[in-house]
Simulated assay, not measured.
Amino acid sequence: MNSHTLQKLAAFTSTPKGGNPAGVWIGDSLPEPKEMQRIAAEVGFSETAFVAPNKGSKRTVRYYSPEAEVPFCGHATIATGVALGKKAGSGIYQFETTIGTIPVEVSEHNGEMRAALTSVEPKFELPSGTLLQDALSALGWSVDDLDSSIPPARAFGGNWHLVLAVKSKQRLDDLNYDFDKLKQIMLDDDLTTLQLIWRENDELIHSRNPFPVGGVVEDSATGAAAVALGGYLREANIINTPRNINILQGEIMGWPSQLNLSIPTVGGITVSGTAVFLTD
């Protein structure tokens, strides 16, 4: 019989009133895909991570939203790292995912577990004119709303995300998009979330992430989008590196989250944060 546990944590927060919740299933061996999908739908969070085996530093990890498998999920990875840290102690865990091996360093600071994942090699490309116009239309935005210092881009750090930066926080705060229209656009273009941002200063970015392809209106903390953004900012020479950036997300939702982004001169991008256990 497959011995397992199913825990619920909120990632990128130190309080259950913030962050992004994720399910963390840890067992001797992974369930069948249909069973993982059923469990993820029952949990109901934007993602649930499934982890096996039950011990060791190398773990196979799969991620499921309520509607489909997702290649990679940042906040569920942070939640899993903290769960493993509480269960098996600090150290570096190697997550074998469908996109490659993701090292996750887990450490304890002042009695609080913290996890840091390092992404696969990031990349970016310019979006097609059609994608940009369709996305702006679904959002109810115009080209004039955009911040020309951070041009639109498709960015990858494990999943593809469309990065759109706006000139004002008011534009970012006033988000009311066409769910079905944006979902179809994203499915057609293999996008996991939209990384909608406003840059307050060189070290602080505010973010919102529509996630209709996962059946979720908005994600309150998106680690995969954060590393994709960090890679884009570096590869497009928008920032000088190395650089640390804090990303604030989930504020308007009432689930404030803080993602700490570390962007080296070369290689994968690291995002770190804390996580807390949730009770039903």
Rank of each mutant, 00 (worst) to 15 (best):
P127F: 07
G111E: 01
G89I: 06
L117F: 15
L117M: 14
E96C: 04
R114I: 11
L136F: 15
L146M: 14
P127N: 12
Y93E: 06
I92M: 12
D144P: 00
Q94K: 09
S90P: 04
G91R: 05
T118P: 13
A135Y: 00
T118D: 12
S90M: 08
L136N: 13
Y93I: 09
G89E: 05
I102F: 13
D147M: 05
Q94I: 07
D145Y: 14
G140W: 01
E125T: 09
D145R: 05
V120S: 02
L131G: 09
G100P: 04
F95N: 10
V106G: 04
S107N: 07
T101L: 03
S107V: 08
M113H: 03
D144L: 01
L126I: 13
P127I: 10
W141S: 00
L117C: 04
K123W: 11
T98N: 07
E112H: 15
R114M: 10
G89A: 07
L117G: 07
S137H: 03
L136G: 14
V104L: 11
P122Q: 08
L131V: 13
L139R: 00
A115P: 10
N110T: 06
G140L: 00
T118R: 13
E96I: 12
M113R: 02
V104N: 10
D134V: 00
L139W: 00
M113K: 03
D144R: 01
G129M: 13
T98M: 11
T118Q: 15
E108A: 06
G100R: 02
L139H: 01
A116R: 07
A116T: 12
P127A: 12
T101E: 05
H109Q: 11
W141N: 00
G111R: 00
T101N: 06
A138R: 13
I99W: 08
G91Q: 03
D147Y: 09
Y93K: 05
S142L: 03
F95V: 05
Y93N: 06
D144K: 00
T118N: 11
S119C: 12
L146E: 10
E105G: 04
S90V: 12
Q133W: 09
M113V: 02
D134H: 00
L132G: 09
V104Q: 06
D145Q: 07
K123A: 09
E105V: 05
L136R: 13
W141F: 10
S148Q: 14
T101G: 03
S90R: 08
L136I: 15
M113C: 02
T130Q: 14
W141M: 01
S119H: 12
A116I: 09
R114P: 04
L136A: 14
L136Y: 15
K123Q: 14
A116G: 02
G111K: 01
S90K: 13
S142Q: 08
S148R: 11
L117W: 06
W141L: 00
T130W: 13
F95E: 06
A116N: 04
P122H: 08
L131H: 08
E112D: 10
A116D: 07
